[in-house]
Amino acid sequence: METTLRRQRAPIVQAIRVDKISGATRLVQAIRIVLAVVYAVLSLIPVLWIGMTAFKSRPDATAVPPKVIFKPTLEGFVSLLTDRAILNEARRQELLARADELPWYQRLMVQQGMEVTGPSQYVGRLRNSVIIAGVSTVAAVVLGLLAAYAFSRFPVPGKGDLLFFILSTRMLPPVVVTIPIFLMYRRLGLHDTHIGLILLYTVFNLSFSVWLMKGFLDEIPREYEEAALVDGYTRLQAFFKVVLPNSLSGLAATTVFCLIFAWNEYAFALMLTTDRARTAPPSITTMLGRGGIEWASIAAGSLGFLIPVVLVTFALRKYLLRGVTFGAIRQ
């Protein structure tokens, strides 16, 4: 009650007198720091390795012992994103003669004995990922926001039970229900459709979205809307003008979490799609090329897939921190 009108307090800082720290304590602290750094590096090594592999040529990628120093090339990316045709000798000479006019990726491929004929399937898959993850995230966030607002502000009958039910959908590992859903989708004609995956992702994200948004909305004092109501606004107007602007951080946090789930989802995407609506994750693993698995392309695909999510998370990191600590889930 008092806190709103008083100044903020600085956080509690423990008094440690630097010159009174013993040598033993210093050593322990130093060891702790070193261990932490080592652990961090070790955790990042797989990611680093994938990153490096993405820029290796095919032979380098599969070399034994693994190559740490190598000549970087964009081969992997090009093979990932383009369809190529194998060149016969005549065509090859023809293209080599025109080498200067060719775009860099053609040149690269020509050296390998191939010609770029157009974008590969992967580009389409990437597009599917963007559409499906994007739409399902928006749907989950919007529906979740509205549901959370209802739970937060109104005496919904059976509120406690409903909320528990919503949470319970997250209690089982999605993989467990893939078979039943597969059969159901087949029947409904939703197999290998965008709508099918969008619906599924939305539903799975909804439980998380409702709970997280409710926590945030609970923090926004009711008095804000009530003041607007008394002033002559309808509930809807009060919602848009007052509640929404104050719940932006919650929205951001929820969006990021939902996006991460939908973007990275693998099991359902694998089981419920074959070609038209297939997203990127299952596609990356099945890069088959000439003479075997194209590790460089797979690495390129993984790296490329990682990056958008990392960027979004980085951009919204401020909100995420608040999201983890602020909107504490409570009844």
Binding site: M1, T4, L5, P221, E223, Y224, E226, A227, L229, V230, D231, G232, Y233, T234, V242, P245, N246
Partner: peptide, 20 residues
């Protein structure tokens, strides 16, 4: 009548100002 139609003005104990 809804609150909007009653034409009353309410001064709350706290949280009545929009921070942004």
């Amino acid at each position: 009548l809804a609150p909007a139609d009653r034409d009353v003005a309410f001064v709350f104990q706290q949280y009545s100002l929009y921070p942004s």
